[in-house]
């Protein structure tokens, strides 16, 4: 029997008002997240990954941004229908988020103990002492040594990796069912990156938290995620289980993306190929209309790629892509 998804994003459209007119940042995006699952989101810089995450939290800066259409269903109730007060009860409690920039994501003038326990006291009727205990426990769980002393420290006294751990502790302090991690390691060095991913992996198993992991690094997805959605210019172009996408990418953009990462290839070393890149740049979002937004960079481009939105092509059981070329080749 098919499980009900925990979180579903349906036909999500996000627009930004700019001086030169409206920009469509997300274009009818569909996603779903099953309980206990780790869903990866990949795509180039500027393709709308962070906007997707902020939409789920309903933290799109408005104005200039706004969610113009769609549904975001958490356990089948639409978050977009909640009033601000109800949405505040969801944030940090049922859905939490950790951000790209650990150096600036903590408030410099409050101790980290206060910033973590604040989340607990906001959502659970805990006394100061209980919240403090729980804070120490959470900091210990994310691998911060001597948390009893750390809670009195301020963000500037911690390294980037430690700060990101504090963010993770804060995000998980109320056992949310969904954790959104938006490029949590981009600003950290490689060894710390590995530690943070190990931590997230362990949390996902121990706490049964579903995770949406945003990254532009295919090798991270290969390590971490169960399923992956590939985004391009505000739309999803392909989605499937991680193995299917890596071993058998169908969409021309995904193929390019996989080829960019040398060690993901099935038989490394047998063919010595130059490191690949996808020619061209991400299009100006204002110009995106009713065509395939990847068409200008696509090596298989055909006439009607410029005329109509590409259809959904089912490739495997959980594997589909949006492409005219694949539709023709069926």
């Amino acid at each position: 029997m098919r499980q009900e998804p925990l979180l579903q994003v349906k036909g999500l459209c996000v627009e930004f008002a700019t001086r030169k007119g409206n920009v469509q940042v997300l274009n009818h995006l569909d996603l779903h997240l099953d309980p206990g699952e780790a869903l990866g989101i990949v795509g180039e810089s500027g393709c709308g990954k962070s906007m997707m995450a902020l939409s789920i939290m309903r933290l799109i800066p408005a104005p200039p941004g706004n969610i113009s259409a769609g549904q975001i269903l958490l356990n089948n109730s639409d978050l977009l229908q909640l009033n601000e007060k109800q949405m505040q009860d969801v944030r940090g409690n049922e859905i939490s988020m950790i951000f790209q920039e650990p150096m600036t994501s903590l408030n410099p003038v409050f101790s980290i103990g206060m910033q973590v326990s604040e989340n607990i006291r906001r959502h659970q009727s805990a006394t100061r002492a209980v919240a403090r205990e729980k804070t120490i426990q959470m900091l210990k769980a994310v691998g911060i040594p001597v948390p009893e002393l750390r809670i009195k420290q301020y963000p500037h006294e911690l390294s980037g990796g430690m700060r990101q751990r504090v963010m993770i502790a804060m995000a998980l302090s109320c056992q949310p069912s969904v954790l959104i991690a938006d490029e949590p390691t981009t600003a950290l060095d490689v060894t710390i990156q590995a530690q943070i991913f190990d931590l997230l992996k362990q949390i996902q198993q121990d706490m049964n938290t579903s995770i949406i992991l945003i990254t532009h690094d295919m090798s991270v997805i290969a390590e971490f995620a169960d399923r992956v959605a590939v985004m391009y210019a505000g739309s999803k172009v392909e989605e499937g289980l991680v193995r299917d996408i890596i071993d058998n990418p169908h969409h021309p953009y995904t193929q390019g993306l996989i080829r960019c990462v040398p060690f993901l290839k099935k038989d490394p070393g047998t063919e010595r190929e130059e490191l690949n890149e996808i020619p061209g740049v991400v299009p100006d979002m204002r110009l995106i209309g009713s065509e395939c937004s990847f068409a200008p960079r696509c090596r298989y481009v055909m006439d009607h790629c410029h005329e109509k939105k590409p259809p959904e092509v089912q490739i495997g059981k959980k594997h589909h892509a949006f492409c005219w070329y694949l539709e023709e080749g069926k």
Partner: peptide, 16 residues
């Protein structure tokens, strides 16, 4: 108000 830590504060569900 435009800084990252304010976004973090909002993401905790704190009131405006």
């Amino acid at each position: 108000l435009g800084s990252d830590y304010i976004r973090t504060a909002r993401s905790k569900g704190l009131s405006e």
